[in-house]
Computed example of a mutant assay.
Amino acid sequence: MQRRIFTIVLSSLFLSAPLAQAQDVIKLSTTTSTENSGLLKVLLPAFEAKTGSKVHVISVGTGKALELGKNGDVDVTLVHARALEDKFVEEGWGVDRRDVMYNDFIVVGPANDPAAIKGGKDVIAAFRKIAASGTRFISRGDNSGTDVMEKGYWQAAASKPAGASYVSAGLGMGEVLNMAAEMRAYTLTDRATYGAYRAKTGLAVLVEGDKRMFNPYGIIAVNPAKHKGVNYKGAKALIDWITSADGQARIAAFRPEGEQLFFPSASR
């Protein structure tokens, strides 16, 4: 009888272990910029050490990152397209949105600058010059935050490179930067990913400083009322930590090659 009880207890422990382990996993969808820059490799180990949780990262464009949240495939999302974020929350898919950090977009391209945009502070004027020059422009083409911003610039410019001069890659930021280098083309990038790829691409920063190139990031928990299976407790723990004094200080301290790439913006 004792042996039978021991077997039942042991079996129940083995059966419950995967369930307990699953509760400690937090699924995060985020942008390729946070992944490519190396920031998450600094932030997440600190959070995991503090909480004992494991964060599983899915790195895609902002549009896809939010879509994963809508489908309940992730617990929390960290993205940078405020209009899409607000819509995500207004439609009831996300809760507890918080500002996390910001940086900026820049226009980069070949050092010889065939479109003569170097030093400009007006991104719309620069886009018009690129379109008129016939020089290639590589677009993310993936409904990411960068892609949404770029499309808005072309719309404001009322012009766009024609035919083969406009390449819609459907790729992440790092891959697009590599393409721009190989094809001697222009592209729009966030400063953080450019910093990680600057040495290998040799692309030059040509336009920066326009207030329309401001690039804020937000973190949002997937609404547990929409998807009962999401790990809301884990999502909330990550949100609370990344917006805490500790998380924000680590964001500010992330300075590969001595340059600060993200600036904390959580209100406390």
Rank of each mutant, 00 (worst) to 15 (best):
R3K: 13
R3Y: 11
T7S: 15
L13N: 08
L13W: 13
L15H: 04
S16K: 02
A17K: 04
Q23R: 13
D24K: 12
V25A: 03
K27W: 12
T31H: 07
T32F: 09
T34Y: 01
S37T: 05
L40D: 02
A46S: 11
F47P: 02
K50W: 01
T51Q: 05
T51P: 00
H56W: 03
H56P: 00
H56M: 07
V60Y: 03
G61W: 01
G63T: 04
K64F: 03
G69E: 07
V74L: 11
V76E: 10
T77E: 10
T77D: 09
L78I: 11
V79I: 09
A81N: 12
R82M: 15
D86K: 12
G92P: 13
G92M: 13
W93S: 14
W93R: 09
V95Q: 14
D96S: 11
D96M: 09
R98V: 00
R98H: 08
R98L: 03
V100E: 07
M101R: 08
Y102M: 02
N103G: 05
N103Q: 03
D104L: 03
F105M: 08
I106F: 08
V107I: 15
G109F: 01
P110M: 08
A111D: 15
A111W: 06
N112D: 14
A115R: 09
A115V: 09
A116E: 10
I117G: 10
D122H: 09
A125C: 08
A126C: 02
R128C: 01
R128A: 07
A131L: 00
A131D: 01
T135K: 05
F137R: 07
I138S: 06
I138Y: 04
S139Q: 10
G141S: 04
G141K: 06
D142S: 02
N143Q: 12
G145E: 04
D147F: 01
D147H: 11
M149G: 11
W154P: 06
Q155K: 14
A158H: 15
P161W: 07
A162D: 13
G163R: 03
G163K: 07
A164T: 12
A169F: 06
A169W: 10
A169S: 14
G170E: 01
L177H: 07
L177C: 03
N178K: 15
E182Y: 13
R184A: 15
A185F: 08
A185R: 04
Y186C: 00
T189L: 04
T189H: 07
D190P: 04
Y194I: 06
Y197T: 12
Y197K: 13
G202R: 10
L203Y: 12
V205N: 03
R212D: 09
N215T: 00
N215R: 02
Y217P: 00
G218Y: 12
I219W: 00
I220P: 07
V222G: 11
P224E: 06
G229T: 15
V230S: 11
V230N: 10
K233L: 12
K233V: 14
G234D: 04
I239R: 05
D240F: 01
T243G: 00
A245P: 02
A245V: 11
D246A: 05
D246L: 02
R250L: 14
R250V: 05
R250M: 11
I251L: 01
I251T: 01
R255S: 08
G258L: 14
S267E: 14
S267C: 03
